[in-house]
Design a protein around this nucleic acid. Structure first.
Length: 789
DNA sequence: GCACTTTGTATACCG
DNA sequence: ACCGGTATACAAAGTGCG
């Protein structure tokens, strides 16, 4: 007889063998800590057909079924109502034998027309999760029967599953984690999998067990050792940095060259490419930290080393080796090779630590979006939100539309005010809380409520001023329901947080709360994304228009109250602070606009430049805030950024223009005297497309091309670090990769005139010191003359 | 032929 | 491969000058 088990869902996969056998496999960890596999046999794959134009829809489906080569291709069907963009429509649900699914869809396209079909583009594993409302990284209760006759190496027990139900959210089980770092050896340039072998594989487990497989006797032996170790340790999670883009494919090719199969999945399968550029291991979570890193704006060049230091995991215990030197270190042998071995091992260990540190975020996203842990960061924010929307759509009887080709047309966005340049004191930043989501909720903006002129008759339509867009008010939109749910759940978590004392529980809730906010905030951008299934440009346009109106009205009201507005951007206004008047404004916003606003911060001093989106301020507690200026841009050299930072500190911490000039002169002098490191002067820029697609000449592009000629691979997304050297002609002819520059080649004049002086002048000119004046002051200081004003 | 202006390309930021 | 708004640098094309 059956029994009941509790398990935490890790991953899902399919096994479609033939007409008779089609199963979904759920990989999990049981409450007892066993690695289990649950098999659901005889699953069907479903798609829908829109049938509103037919008089007898049922007969039409029967007619279609008769035309199919085999009777069993469609196992069952059901005619009923479903919504398409909010409109109720007669549809048929066709449940197919998964083995024949593609065939049936092909025929259905011919029979009904492609545009009538829905959900035929979802793969069966994904659909299974959606239909059964199963979210990975969550605990479930299942009634099962154990299949004792089958034994598989990667699992402790196998069950046939009958029923599954969600149980209350709880702490995740202790996952078995393995970090993986790989070093290749190439005589010259980038290692190529067709010719260059693996030199080192380092692994580390969550229990601190470290192991290295080194190219000594043969690569075959190395790879075998790694495969055996993986199978023996049997991790739930394999953590890499670049596993999706490089390592798993590289290792697979190397295995092939050695007549091996890279059998590192739970059923000994090799890795396989999946959606969103993810490389998947059956039964395991392959988490690529690189994907996570891409989303952290504070990690400037998206390297592993920077990530580890950002996470606070770099304790300075080891000397870093730049990956471009790995082959060199390997081939030099001796001490160098030893250092490389230590470093690689350290990296593997840090992979585990990094994963454990961000585990909550990954799990939270996985639970809410319904994507397995290893897909959440591989997918872009739009797809992540979309996965969540798809789950909600099913609950709303809303059919999931397909993303189709759309014309890219822009619309007007947020309102940005011209700042009043110069130094201001006591400036309050009034921020609307979640302005766009609030406006969407308040006005019921959703793909199924947006209409354009001429508005349809018979509905109550709210017109959006200054546009040809209207919003139907008679029924609640699909997005409105979702947003409300997101907000409600977030509020309830915030309530729970107030009473939570236990640390683990607190952080789980806190992370979940943040995740919900991120999803709510993404909904506006999603509506305007042409790749979205629920693309509705007019909806995004309406939100932006309403946002502009709110800001405009707030400025008028502030004026009326007697508050001076000095700047504003999209959902904020900067005002000369007066507590009483500001509170009056906040009350008005809440009562008349029905929105929430708060004083985000008060700058005791703030400097606005002539430009929008570029300013620096200091709050009462002495915290420096720099927005948009070169200091926060990664495409300026560090020396210039540091100089600007020093300058702003001087000016905002009470010192005058004179000291500032002295400081700038000093910084220029140090450069001229050669008191800098090359690293200070590297300019980093990202390669944003494949090199052939560039039409213009620019330093980072010509340096990238030069690297390619030397055998290095430059991929989209890579950062190129270069310096400008002395010589004639345009910059791109005298830019050099940072690894090849000698100190005496550097064009110091370029750095002074085009890096240091511009970033200082940007600030100084609004304080009354022109570029020309600044230059002459710096020059006279350099000659040891007295300063004059 | 040269200096100056305008236009186009590219990057990275803000909210 | 989430949106539009914005600043800025550099290269290249355009323009006017007896």
């Amino acid at each position: 007889m059956g029994k009941t088990i509790y398990f935490w869902l890790l991953d899902v996969s399919k096994n479609i063998v033939n007409e008779q056998k089609s199963e979904i496999r759920l990989w999990g960890v049981s409450k007892e800590g066993e690695r289990i596999l649950l098999i659901r046999d005889g699953v069907v794959q479903t798609f829908y057909v829109k049938l509103e134009s037919y008089e007898d829809p049922e007969a039409e489906i029967k007619r279609f079924n008769k035309l199919l080569p085999h009777e069993s291709m469609v196992k069952s069907f059901k005619v009923g109502k479903r919504k398409i963009f909010g409109r109720e429509t007669v549809c048929a649900e066709l449940n197919c034998n998964p083995y024949w699914f593609k065939e049936v869809v092909k025929e259905a396209k011919k029979f009904f027309g492609e545009e009538k079909l829905f959900e035929d583009d979802l793969n069966i594993s994904r659909q299974f999760l959606l239909k059964n409302d199963l979210t990975p990284s969550t605990w479930f209760k299942a009634s099962v029967e154990e299949l004792k006759s089958i034994k598989l190496k990667g699992v402790d027990r196998i069950y046939r599953v009958n029923e599954i139900g969600k149980i209350e959210l709880d702490e995740p089980p202790k996952l078995k984690v393995m970090g993986l770092d790989v070093v290749y050896f190439a005589r010259k340039g980038e290692p190529r999998p067709e010719k260059d072998p693996v030199a080192i594989i380092s692994v580390c487990t969550d229990k601190g067990l470290k192991k290295q497989f080194i190219l000594e006797n043969s690569e075959n032996e190395l790879l075998k050792g790694f495969i055996d170790f993986t199978s023996a340790f049997n991790p739930d999670v394999m953590v890499t940095f670049g596993g999706n883009t490089v390592h798993l494919a590289y290792l697979s090719i190397r295995a092939e060259k050695n007549n091996l199969k890279l059998s590192i999945g739970k059923l000994n399968e090799p890795p396989h490419p999946s959606i969103f550029g993810h490389v998947s291991l059956v039964g395991r979570v392959h988490f690529d930290l690189k994907d996570f890193t891409e989303e952290i704006a504070m990690v400037e060049h998206k390297t592993f080393q920077e990530l580890i230091s950002f996470l606070g995991l770099d304790k300075g215990e080891i000397e870093h080796i730049n990956p471009i030197h790995f082959s060199e270190f390997w081939s030099q042998g001796g001490e160098k090779r030893n250092n490389l071995l230590k470093y690689s091992s350290w990296r593997a260990a840090k992979m585990v630590e990094a994963f454990q540190l961000i585990q909550n975020q990954i799990i939270s996203l996985s639970q809410i979006t319904g994507m397995p842990m290893d897909y959440v960061y591989a997918a872009s924010p739009g797809y992540r939100l979309e996965n969540y929307l798809m789950r909600e759509a099913i609950k709303h009887c809303e059919l999931i539309p397909k993303a189709t080709e759309k014309i890219v047309r822009s619309y007007t966005g947020g309102k940005v005010l011209q700042p009043k340049p110069g130094l201001h004191r006591n400036i309050a930043v009034v921020d609307f809380k979640s302005m766009y989501p609030s406006l969407m909720l308040k006005h019921n903006i959703s793909p199924d409520t947006i209409v354009t002129k001429p508005f349809p008759k018979g509905y109550k339509v709210l017109e959006v001023e200054g546009t040809n867009i209207g919003i139907v008010q008679d029924r609640r939109g699909f997005f409105t329901d979702i947003l409300e749910k997101l907000v409600r759940e977030r509020d309830s978590i915030k309530e729970m947080l107030k009473e939570t004392r236990e640390t683990v529980k607190y952080w789980l809730l806190e992370t979940r709360q943040k995740t919900l906010k991120i999803l709510a905030n993404a909904m506006y951008g999603y509506m305007g994304w042409t790749g979205a299934r629920w693309f509705i440009r007019a909806g995004a346009e309406a939100v932006a228009a309403l946002g502009r109106k709110v800001v405009t009205e707030t400025i008028e009201k502030a004026d009326e109250i007697g508050l001076k507005v000095v700047y504003g951007d999209t959902d904020s206004v900067f005002i000369e602070y007066d507590e009483e008047k500001t509170n009056k404004l906040l009350n008005w916003i809440s009562e008349e606009l029905g929105l929430k606003a708060k004083i985000d911060k008060v700058y005791s001093k703030v400097i606005f430049t002539e430009a929008k989106k570029r300013y620096a301020g200091i709050t009462g507690d002495g915290k420096l805030d720099v927005v948009g200026l070169e200091m926060v841009r990664r495409d300026w050299c560090n020396y210039a950024r540091e100089t600007q930072k020093g300058l702003l500190e001087i000016l905002l911490k009470g010192k005058g223009v004179e000291e500032a000039v002295g400081y700038i002169s000093e910084r220029v002098k140090l450069l001229r005297q050669g008191r800098f490191t090359l690293e200070d002067l590297i300019i980093w820029e990202q390669i944003t497309r494949s090199l052939e697609d560039y039409v213009a000449n620019a330093p980072h592009i010509s340096v990238a091309k030069e690297l390619m000629r030397k055998g290095w691979e430059v991929k989209k997304g890579d950062y190129i670090g270069y310096l400008i050297c002395k010589g004639e002609g345009p910059l791109y002819t005298r830019s050099k990769h940072y690894t090849e520059v000698k100190v005496k080649e550097v064009d110091i004049d370029y750095y002074i005139e085009k890096q240091i002086l511009p970033v200082c002048s940007r600030i100084m000119r609004v304080l009354g010191v022109s570029r020309k004046k600044l230059e002459s002051l710096v020059a006279s200081a350099g000659r040891g003359l007295e300063m004059f004003f």
